[in-house]
């Protein structure tokens, strides 16, 4: 009797070990998918933020250009206002005379001035590049006048040279100060 058992019946009796639901794979796939989507979002965000920065940058570039132009215009206005001819004209208008400054009237001051040396004012082109520490504008050295003893192709040395404030201090600025007073 036992021998007559059908094959099907016999196989149905076999107990196979199977996983109920493949949760493991589902979660793994989900995580991978989420990571992928998150990656896309991150990339998109980076892309659009870089575009935003680029556009802001472009606007700032335009602004810098405008400000530089404005600075040049202001510099020219300043130079125009401080031109010796303009100062002389204005001084004459308010009653100052054009008497040439001589050492007679101010001999002690001149002698004193000759012994003291004011700090050199920063030139415009240097002031425009204040941040540039590598600006290597040559300093004026006070050297002995007779430093060119002779000989061919001797490099000419630098000599104490007039600077704006010094000259102005003895000419134009006197007028300006008087005008202000």
């Amino acid at each position: 009797m036992k021998r007559k058992r059908s094959i099907t019946n016999r196989s149905s009796r076999v107990r196979r070990q199977r996983d109920p639901i493949p949760w493991k794979y589902c979660v793994l796939s989900l995580i991978c998918g989420l990571l992928l989507v998150a990656g896309f979002f991150a990339a998109a965000q980076q892309h659009f933020s870089s575009l935003g920065v680029a556009m802001d940058n472009a606007k700032l570039r335009v602004k810098i250009k405008q400000l530089r132009d404005q600075k040049r215009k202001l510099l020219i206005s300043k130079e125009r206002a401080a031109s010796p001819a303009k100062i002389a004209t204005l001084a004459r208008k308010i009653g100052f005379t054009d008497t040439p400054r001589t050492v007679v009237t101010g001999a002690p001051e001149v002698i004193e001035a000759a012994s003291t040396r004011d700090a050199k004012p920063m030139p415009v082109y240097a002031a425009a590049n204040q941040n540039d520490k590598s600006s290597n504008r040559k300093e004026v050295h006070v050297k002995d006048k007779k430093r060119n003893p002779g000989g061919k192709n001797v490099k000419a040395g630098k000599k104490p040279t007039p600077n704006g404030s010094q000259v102005a201090a003895l000419s134009g600025s006197d007028l300006i100060n008087n005008v202000r007073e």
Partner: peptide, 19 residues
């Protein structure tokens, strides 16, 4: 005129006789 105005501006000390 030029010398009398430029020399003091260059801070050159007087070395001559006054007028």
């Amino acid at each position: 005129e030029i010398a009398e105005n430029v020399l003091p501006a260059l801070k050159v000390a007087p070395d001559g006789v006054f007028e």
